[in-house]
Simulated scan of single mutants.
Amino acid sequence: MTTKSYTSSPHLDQALAGFGAGLVSTVILHPLDVIKIRFQVDERKKSEQRPLIGGTVRSFKKIVRNEGVWRGLYRGVTPNIAGATASWSLYFWWYSLIKKHMTKNEEGKLSPFQHLTASAEAGAITAVFTNPLWVIKTRMCTTTRYTPNAYTGLLNGLRRLATEEGIAGLYRGMVPALFGVSHGAIQFMAYEEMKKWRKDIREKEGLAGLDAERLSTAEYLVMAATSKVTATVATYPYQVLRSRFQSQTTQDKYKGVMDCVRQIYRAEGYVGFYKGLSPNIIRVLPGTCITFVVYERVSQYLRENATEHSV
């Protein structure tokens, strides 16, 4: 039996495309991640909060002024790159593999629920593998190089996290992270359905095969942005919860997810669950567009240059 792929496996092709997509978007947009996470862990009460408008710009200027560009805006970029490339690679690999083993309809297509299920399963597996990297990223983004005992880099952070806090430290924030699986599931279900809808239209126009699947960059951008914004608005509070847990070095502050929800609501109100949403939205639109366009273009290149491999 043979299969057509650029590497030895079509699932590995998907992982390679995901790796490239994650790398490009992370390097370009990391400063907005730093600002977003610092907002998310800000525990000031409602009466102490500054006006929401302009907060992202003020934070950007403050970080540059006090910490510099590379050591401030790009603090934590190494674990972010490691986490993003690992996450996108693993996610697309598992997503492709899971879809392959699902039962398709008479037209050889999956239902929206199957796309949702495949995305959720791939997201959960990916979250388990990559959580330690996100803990390091969060802690580096919420500290400066002048903060006492702050992590100096990815390897330093992993070593200290494992030795000082053990498994509990490596998987801090895991429960909210699993809640976040719904984010990817909603995003990819919407994205896949829009792609399928557009492909059906192109097939009705007389196109077939790769020609029907070859959408324009503008079409990818619109579908990627729409699916991402939909998922972000629906699930954003889990990111705040995850950042709060990951930034804590002990369990003394929050006794569990529901305790964290209660404390945030009592002290900060509903706004507390949406802290950092502004820089996140600013990051989401170009980030998602960059990620999906790079992913689709790399995938298209791999498909068009695929060769037969024995399996």
Rank of each mutant, 00 (worst) to 15 (best):
residue 280 N to V: 02
residue 265 Y to P: 01
residue 280 N to R: 05
residue 258 M to F: 12
residue 253 K to C: 12
residue 250 T to A: 14
residue 272 G to C: 07
residue 252 D to P: 10
residue 258 M to W: 15
residue 265 Y to H: 10
residue 255 K to V: 10
residue 273 F to T: 01
residue 282 I to G: 04
residue 283 R to I: 01
residue 288 T to Q: 09
residue 263 Q to A: 10
residue 264 I to A: 05
residue 257 V to Y: 11
residue 257 V to I: 08
residue 271 V to N: 15
residue 279 P to I: 06
residue 285 L to R: 00
residue 273 F to P: 02
residue 266 R to D: 15
residue 249 T to K: 12
residue 249 T to R: 13
residue 272 G to W: 03
residue 287 G to Q: 10
residue 285 L to Q: 08
residue 266 R to N: 08
residue 259 D to L: 09
residue 273 F to A: 02
residue 272 G to R: 04
residue 254 Y to T: 05
residue 267 A to L: 07
residue 282 I to V: 06
residue 282 I to E: 00
residue 270 Y to M: 11
residue 269 G to A: 04
residue 255 K to H: 09
residue 261 V to S: 06
residue 276 G to C: 01
residue 251 Q to T: 13
residue 253 K to G: 09
residue 267 A to P: 08
residue 278 S to P: 05
residue 256 G to Q: 04
residue 288 T to C: 10
residue 261 V to P: 10
residue 278 S to D: 12
residue 277 L to P: 00
residue 254 Y to C: 03
residue 275 K to E: 02
residue 270 Y to C: 03
residue 279 P to S: 11
residue 268 E to M: 12
residue 277 L to N: 14
residue 250 T to I: 09
residue 265 Y to Q: 15
residue 268 E to L: 04
residue 283 R to Q: 05
residue 252 D to M: 09
residue 250 T to S: 08
residue 267 A to R: 11
residue 263 Q to C: 09
residue 287 G to Y: 05
residue 276 G to T: 00
residue 284 V to P: 02
residue 252 D to W: 14
residue 267 A to N: 12
residue 256 G to M: 03
residue 276 G to V: 00
residue 269 G to S: 07
residue 275 K to T: 00
residue 278 S to Q: 15
residue 284 V to W: 00
residue 275 K to Y: 04
residue 260 C to N: 03
residue 266 R to F: 14
residue 257 V to A: 11
residue 266 R to H: 08
residue 253 K to T: 12
residue 269 G to H: 09
residue 274 Y to N: 05
residue 281 I to N: 13
residue 265 Y to T: 14
residue 253 K to R: 15
residue 251 Q to A: 06
residue 254 Y to S: 05
residue 262 R to G: 14
residue 271 V to K: 15
residue 258 M to Y: 14
residue 258 M to K: 15
residue 264 I to K: 02
residue 264 I to M: 08
residue 265 Y to R: 15
residue 250 T to H: 05
residue 272 G to T: 09
residue 272 G to E: 11
residue 265 Y to M: 10
residue 257 V to C: 08
residue 263 Q to V: 12
residue 268 E to T: 04
residue 282 I to S: 09
residue 272 G to K: 00
residue 273 F to I: 05
residue 264 I to Y: 04
residue 261 V to N: 11
residue 271 V to Q: 07
residue 283 R to S: 14
residue 257 V to T: 05
residue 276 G to A: 01
residue 286 P to N: 04
residue 286 P to V: 01
residue 252 D to H: 09
residue 281 I to G: 07
residue 253 K to S: 15
residue 264 I to R: 03
residue 255 K to N: 08
residue 275 K to R: 13
residue 287 G to L: 02
residue 287 G to C: 05
residue 254 Y to G: 10
residue 281 I to V: 07
residue 272 G to S: 11
residue 288 T to G: 13
residue 268 E to Q: 08
residue 262 R to E: 12
residue 284 V to L: 12
residue 263 Q to R: 13
residue 265 Y to F: 13
residue 266 R to A: 07
residue 264 I to L: 14
residue 284 V to C: 08
residue 269 G to C: 07
residue 252 D to E: 14
residue 279 P to R: 11
residue 255 K to F: 09
residue 255 K to G: 05
